[in-house]
Design a protein around this nucleic acid. Structure first.
Length: 607
RNA sequence: CGGAGUGUAGCUCAGCCUGGUAGAGCACUGCGUUCGGGACGCAGGGGUCGCAGGUUCGAAUCCUGUCACUCCGACCA
């Protein structure tokens, strides 16, 4: 369906709806009639769409793919994007931040100055202008904002200051996927605060924590704030905000009995309470001719996976050029946590050893390597806390085709260095002692950092304090993935008929579906009147005035995710009744014509 | 970066093995019927079969190259 946007203007709508959602996101607009809008829906999603939100957004005509990980936001999808953006903007403003707009294209000099020109890999899109000057398309804006602030902020009297923008970013992801959830170009709100003290940074960090919580609550999403690793951006304190959805890319460990929640990258795996049982078995060599993986060895020997110790060979290349080799020991049923392991001084930074390095140090191919009888001078052995508590375990024999069983620390090999290097699993005790952990999938939609002085120092962003002394500023940075939120919201809200969005961000709050708009004068009149009434009441309503069969209109309005539907039919009108159905409702209900505006207002304000 | 796969109409796909005038469904245009859950009939418009070479009388089809896209992997030995 293709219709031109006509030049008609909507009647001015000044009436504000008294509602906690606020009125500022009301958009002045053309009459919202489907016959004059522009959208098209598909019965089938493109074959390469992977996740539900991506399929739904393409089918509903929210977005069109322009290239891998790059999308056009069509008018319908843009309405959703803008609603999200506006809620974010309102709350940021309310929290005292000031909006500005920085360039998407940034000069290489700033990135060279901060050191990230070298640090960033191919993810950073670089190019040259006609004068052969180097530029990047910003994946983030720490450098630019720091440059802005260092130029103009000279005195402690000007601090603190918090500046933010809503801007397109570009990250040249290895594998863009999941539609707008992991696109290369995406819309992000990024804010940066500058302070004269760490204490003030912490105050603002708390302010943002609360602001973010308010934003995601207003958006109508199920979310959780979780303690996070600070990753490559660097800094100290950090929280991620995750929308909870099975298709999420991150694992979140949380305690159902308390507030504890952490990205699995960070969640601490406590040492087992039980002390190590005394050795009961003699160490012996067992033949495992074809069993190289832990699960195969366990099955072959008929023992639990948790009785096996797996050894992961890593190599650490220090800046000075020295390299060291280490074995990381994990229980068979546990997974290595690279972030935690990467923080161990002895092996930081590490990478996985190559096959030849493994043979050189252990005299054995991968699959049968183990910690027994290795030269501790040359091979560091670091065991996870859970491994340190094991006795009579099975591990590789450093001889192809064999494992050792009945192995015990102290007797068969020296005690290892012990560290927390595994991912927590469901059922592990919560670090706060409030019960067992559970694990959920989440989509990261917000991230707040205490950056401290990393960039301020690199870019010499300084001010004069009360004593006229020059000091480096403290920085915080706060991001929200605006376009990703749209995908995440749809991951959280959909059914086999299409998208289900919270009213706060749905493309329209209410749709009117008249039965026979082009046949029945009574229906047309009632529909037009109700449309005008709802508009006047400040409700974001769309009238489906296409000359389509009812099934088509119902299906489209459901697919594009409109939360409330009113059907106007001749049958009901004779009784003074209209039919109402919520997007998630099983059955429609009849409501008196006179009450419908009030009922809808009530439903929208209660949301 | 390694492996696998796919490129044919806006979308979903067939045709390719075995070379011979480019197809179906959905979508789109017109007419008619239909009209409370993605209707039906008739008539249409739309594709240099990813691109470039090659083989051949003749290539969507076979060969070579290239580009794009997708999936899996790039850590758990």
């Amino acid at each position: 369906m293709v219709t031109p946007i006509l030049s008609q203007r909507a009647p001015a709508c000044k009436e504000a709806r008294p509602c906690k959602i606020g009125v500022s996101q009301r958009i002045q607009e053309h009459p919202m009639r489907t016959s004059q809008f522009f959208f098209n829906t598909l019965k089938e999603a493109p074959a390469d769409a992977e996740v539900i939100s991506q399929k739904m957004m393409l089918r509903a005509g929210y977005i069109k793919r322009a290239a891998a990980g790059i999308y056009t936001w069509m008018p319908l999808g843009l309405r959703v994007l803008r609603k999200v953006e506006n809620i974010v903007r309102e709350e940021m403003n309310r929290a005292g931040a000031l909006e500005l707009l920085m360039p998407a294209v940034q000069p290489a000099e700033l990135w060279q100055e901060s050191g990230r020109w070298e640090q960033y890999g191919p993810e950073l899109l670089r190019f040259k202008d006609r004068h052969q000057r180097e530029f990047v398309i910003g994946p983030t804006h720490e450098e630019v904002i720091t440059d802005v602030v260092r130029r103009d902020v000279k005195s402690y009297r000007q601090l603190p200051i918090h500046l933010y923008q809503v801007q397109s970013k570009f990250r040249d992801e290895i594998r863009p996927r999941f539609g707008v959830m992991r696109g290369r170009e995406f819309l992000m709100k990024d804010g940066y605060s500058f302070h004269s003290s760490f204490a003030d940074l912490q105050r603002e960090y708390g302010n943002m924590y609360n602001t973010y919580s308010r934003i995601f609550t207003r958006l109508g999403l199920k979310f959780r704030a979780v303690a996070a690793d600070t990753g490559s951006i660097g800094g100290t304190g950090s929280h991620e905000f995750h929308v909870l959805a099975d298709s999420g890319e991150d694992d979140i460990a949380y305690c159902p009995n308390s507030d504890y929640a952490a990205n699995i990258e960070l969640a601490e795996a406590l040492a087992p309470n039980e002390t190590r049982a005394p050795a009961a078995q003699a160490m012996s060599k067992v033949a495992t001719p074809d069993q190289t993986a832990c699960a195969d060895v366990a099955a072959y020997l008929g023992i639990p996976l948790a009785d096996i110790v797996k050894s992961i060979a890593v190599v650490s290349e220090k800046e000075g050029g020295s390299t060291s080799f280490a074995l990381l020991l994990l229980r068979g049923d546990h997974d290595l946590n690279e972030i935690k392991a990467g923080k161990i001084a002895a092996i930081e930074p590490f990478r996985f050893a190559t096959e030849s390095e493994i043979e050189a140090h252990l005299g054995c191919k991968p699959g049968y390597i183990g910690p027994v009888a290795v030269d501790r001078e040359k091979v560091a052995v670091i065991a996870d806390r859970s491994v340190a508590a094991m006795s009579d375990f099975v591990c590789g024999a450093n001889e192809a085709g064999f494992h050792l069983s009945g192995v015990n620390f102290g007797r068969d090999l020296p005690p290892p260095e012990v560290a927390d290097i595994r991912n927590v699993v469901a059922g592990d005790p919560s670090p706060d002692g409030q019960g067992p952990l559970a694990i959920l999938r989440g989509i990261e939609v917000g991230h707040i950092f205490q950056l401290r002085q990393k960039y301020a120092e690199a870019l010499n962003c300084a001010y004069l304090d009360e004593n006229g002394k020059s000091r480096i500023m403290e920085m915080g940075c706060y991001g929200i993935g605006v376009s990703r939120i749209v995908g995440a919201a749809i991951e959280q809200g959909n059914d086999d008929r299409g998208i289900i969005l919270p009213p706060a961000i749905a493309p329209f709050e209410v749709c009117l579906v008249p039965m026979g708009y082009h046949k029945s004068e009574a229906v047309k009149e009632a529909a037009d009147q109700l449309y005008a009434d709802l508009k006047a009441a400040g409700i974001d309503v769309v009238l489906d005035d296409r000359n389509e069969r009812p099934g088509v209109m119902f299906a489209d309005m459901e697919l594009i995710g409109i939360p409330h539907r009113v059907v106007i039919g001749e049958r009901g009108l004779k009784e003074g009744q209209l039919e109402y159905k919520g997007r998630r409702d099983e059955e429609a209900v009849m409501i008196a014509q006179a009450d419908i505006v009030g009922v809808l207002k009530g439903k929208l304000c209660a949301a």
